[in-house]
Each structure stands twice: as structure tokens, then as C-alpha cells.
Nucleic acid binder design. Sequence first.
DNA 1: GTTCTTTGACCGTGT
DNA 2: CACACGGTCAAAGAA
Length: 214
Amino acid sequence: NYAPTSSYQQHQTTASFVSPLAANLHPYPSSSSSSSYFQTDLPPQWPPRAMAPSPSSSLLPRNFTVHQTPAYPHHHEQQMHMQLLRAAALGGPHAAPAPPIEQPAKDGYNWRKYGQKQLKDAESPRSYYKCTRDACPVKKIVERSFDGCIKEITYKGRHTHPRPPEPRRAGAEDAAAPSSAVGAHQEDELSDDEDDGEEGHDIAARVVRRGRGW
DNA sequence: GTTCTTTGACCGTGT
DNA sequence: CACACGGTCAAAGAA
Ligand SMILES: [Zn+2]
């Protein structure tokens, strides 16, 4: 399942600067030969809208790969993998002061972190987020590298609500076409994860699990 | 008061 | 059975 990184690395080199999030992520490759993915029932708008959080941190990963699992046929849960890979040549000497920590990739939704785990092998800790909207089951797992770069983002579930409105900046530029010619190309890939309908127990177990400690 | 992050403990699953 | 691993809870703190 998780051996993809290597394969991506070869491609990532070609990545030209790409605005963190561009329309490239769009599931609608209009006339793309392989639109096999997304054909499932993706939310009307799954691609993160404005990822450029602020003027400060623009050293986000250049290249990214999208792994999205088609909605679970017999399950209400959907999982998509989105891998953000940064250019290999990032270890640049001068590069930039490199902010100690980067903001979590913003995708337009609001998340609350409910856990973090240091994985066994990988030295990249995973952060677990849940959509703050009430009754919205969507979860998000962010795995970063030691240097803070996002290695992989995993979305689970579908939002039961539209994307919350973006906070307006007083006297700021309009959010029409911020990124100029961002038309670089990147590879969007999706990988099927478990399609056999595992995790079914997940929901049930969760409910029962209510009364622990307290 | 609120919401969100941090953090170790806890729990389910797999070996 | 125990143990390791990954995901989640929830108390305490921070904003
Ligand atoms: Zn949501």
C-alpha cells in the first residue's frame, strides 16, 4: 500500500513552481484521457481552494500527488490520499530562513487537532484533525517530515456541508486570480486503498466507545 | 466564557 | 495469551 513515495520521487523533480494549490487539483480533467479517478462521488469541490495561507509561508511543497480512494461502495466513508511532495532540491543553502514550523495545509475547512502520533518507522509524526463542523465526520491526517514539510495528507469522509466562507481580509486583494500563471503540471494520482469495505466496524465501535475514562 | 493545541493514556486490531 | 502499532480520547494548557 504505502510504497508509492519512491515512485513519485522520480516525477517530482520536474515540478515547476506551482502555487501550493492550483486548479490542477481539480477532479475535472475535462478532457483528460484518464479520468478514471474522481468518477466516483467526490464532493463537488474537493480540491483545496486557497492553500497559500499567508504571504509568510510560501515554501510549501512544490509537487504533490493525489491519492484518492473512491467512495466506499458499501460504506459511507471515503478516503482520499493527497500527498504533497516537495522538490528534492529544497535543501538549498541559503534558501530561506525557513520558518520553524509551517502552517498546516489549509484547504478551506476548519479542523481541530485531536491527536498526534509518532510512527514507528517513519520519523514523521502524524497529526490527526477533525472537521470542526458539527456532525461532520471528516477527518484528516497530516504527516510531515522532520523538517516540517508535509509529506502526506489523508482525508477521510465527506463533508456534510459546503466549504465555509473564507475570512475576508480588510482591504485585501480580492480572491479572484491570485496565482498568476500557475499552470504548471503535476501528477495527480489516486490509489485504491482497501475497497473491500473494511473499517465498517469503525463506525459502530466509535459510538459504543463513548463512556470510557469518565 | 469559548475554541483549539498539546500530550500521555487508552483502546482496537493485528501479529 | 502478550505485545507492538496506529488511531483516538480527554485533561490540561494556551490563545
Ligand atoms: Zn466538514
